[in-house]
């Protein structure tokens, strides 16, 4: 089933997020999780099949895919890119403050204070 395969992508993202040693790597994994969530929403909206939700004067025979998840996900993509940009900008600041982008070194510097 398609939603199950999509859920595997989200779980891979979680795995990467918890094992990543690098801040940039964590941001990459967040991007993966985000894409997986969008795909999961679209999969669930398309369970019954049907055509794309653009209609003419008469309704299509097989019905349409659910337009509501799609409408929510369009804004998610645009917002997600800007939030990624914000996270990366913070990464640059963190590098110039701590001199490194490795989680372990940053934590040791913070605790050694």
């Amino acid at each position: 089933m398609n939603p199950l395969l999509t859920f595997v992508v989200i779980l891979i993202g979680f795995y990467g997020l918890s094992t990543s040693t690098n801040i940039i790597k964590s941001v990459f994994c967040v991007t993966i999780i985000e894409s997986g969530v969008i795909l999961l929403f679209l999969n669930l909206g398309n369970l019954d099949g049907g055509v794309i939700p653009v209609i003419g004067d008469t309704l299509p025979v097989g019905g349409i895919a659910d337009p509501l998840p799609q409408a929510l996900m369009i804004t998610t993509i645009v917002i997600g890119s800007t939030v990624t940009a914000l996270a990366l900008m913070l990464c640059i600041k963190v590098f110039h403050h701590y001199g490194t982008v490795e989680w372990a070194e940053i934590l040791s510097r913070e605790s050694g204070k």
Binding site: L44, D48, P53, I55, L59, G63, I64, D66, P67, L68
Partner: peptide, 13 residues
């Protein structure tokens, strides 16, 4: 999962 919202939007959107 139900199709009420989908059907309403398809019929009167």
């Amino acid at each position: 999962y139900n199709t009420f919202g989908k059907d309403y939007i398809a019929a009167s959107g």
